[in-house]
Write a protein that binds this DNA or RNA. Structure first.
Lengths: 205, 205
DNA sequence: GTCTATATTACGATAGAC
DNA sequence: GTCTATCGTAATATAGAC
């Protein structure tokens, strides 16, 4: 992977955003200068201002895209109908998929710290998401499918901390061979769901 | 919690480090200026240079402290003797405790991205830690105490992603009442170990 | 849509007095 | 150990030509 994208004749907001998110994830948002972005996009700093108002707008566009994808999962029918434990499993699995599908955007979202207005709005929407998952967890416990001794708030924090930690190491596979120990997209989601619901202990032991 | 510490007459490297790590964790390392640190420490920018060579040295001191604490866990006798599954459980529990004990330092460590030499060294030591835990996981699977279908590398990434995600929300309790849903230090470690080994599913269901 | 050139501010770091 | 004052650099952003 080169630190600099190939030069191109013309950019759109979306193509520029894709480049910017990649650089933000390598150098950090605050550690990235407009000059860094210009080099990576193959244009000059001032050309970037033709597409967006500034660095913060690129951040706002990126985290909004990530959040919209995550919230869409909660609105899908299988996340709204049936036993709470099944809905929870569905949300976990689909959130993993969404995270991997939109990896650079979600990665950036999860690293936001609240320094700017755009970041604080993103943090608030994340809290809302977490709250809705905690409610789902509480329902699944009340329905008896999850262990009764679980603290729903604590458990949902742990489970989504686990899901979100995928951004720390998961890298999409290229050319049929990847660096994730042979674990592709759905294999990771399967392993994660199995860990969450049944743990690592061997029942036969 | 005020964004600025109380003014004090004199600083040591350690007291300055504690202030700096707190600010780094709120604003991000790159988002923190020497002026921010000076205000938080109640002294001027130039006074900071009397104690340390610059901003990067504060970062290096902080992540070194965090890493030393984590590696010390691996050298404790219960992490080196007995069945691998029991050693693994010990390492998970003690790593949680170490993370909480040293929360600001470990939080900063886990957010480092590799922009500077100090950060790249820290990332390398983290990889070494992860590798040693993955070996422990593989032994526990080979000994039959963990499910045979587990991928040790993937599973150890998930488990330590889970442990590390504590830094995203855990806050130490103050005045006997905390904001962690009544879950104190060891209750969190207990819930995490229970989740990892046995999952959330109710066996009676 | 991109460029060169530049305004303006903020930053990390140093000099030297107390 | 801390201060005031300042240096040199790098940052965001704008103006105006092509």
């Amino acid at each position: 992977m080169s630190a600099q994208s190939a030069r191109r004749d013309s950019h759109t907001v979306q193509s520029l955003l894709a480049v910017a998110v990649g650089v933000f994830n390598v150098r950090g948002y605050d550690g990235t200068s407009m000059e860094d972005l210009a080099k990576a996009a193959g244009i000059t700093k001032s050309s970037i201002y033709h597409h967006v108002a500034g660095k913060e707008e690129l951040l706002r566009l990126a985290v909004t895209r990530a959040l919209d994808g995550l919230f869409a999962v909660l609105d899908e029918p299988p996340a709204r109908e049936g036993a709470a434990a099944a809905r929870l499993e569905y949300v976990i699995r689909r959130t993993c998929a969404e995270l991997i599908e939109n990896l650079p955007y979600v990665t950036l979202l999860l690293r936001v710290r609240g320094n700017t207005a755009a970041e604080r709005e993103a943090l608030e929407r994340r809290r809302d998401f977490d709250h809705r998952v905690a409610e789902l967890m509480a329902e699944a416990i009340a329905e008896g499918d999850l262990r009764a001794d679980l603290d729903p708030r604590l458990t949902s924090r742990l489970v989504f901390g686990l899901v979100n930690s995928l951004t720390e190491w998961y890298r999409p596979q290229e050319h049929g061979v990847g660096g994730n120990g042979g674990a592709d997209h759905s294999a990771v989601a399967d392993a994660l769901v199995a860990l969450v619901f049944d743990g690592v202990r061997n029942p036969a032991a």
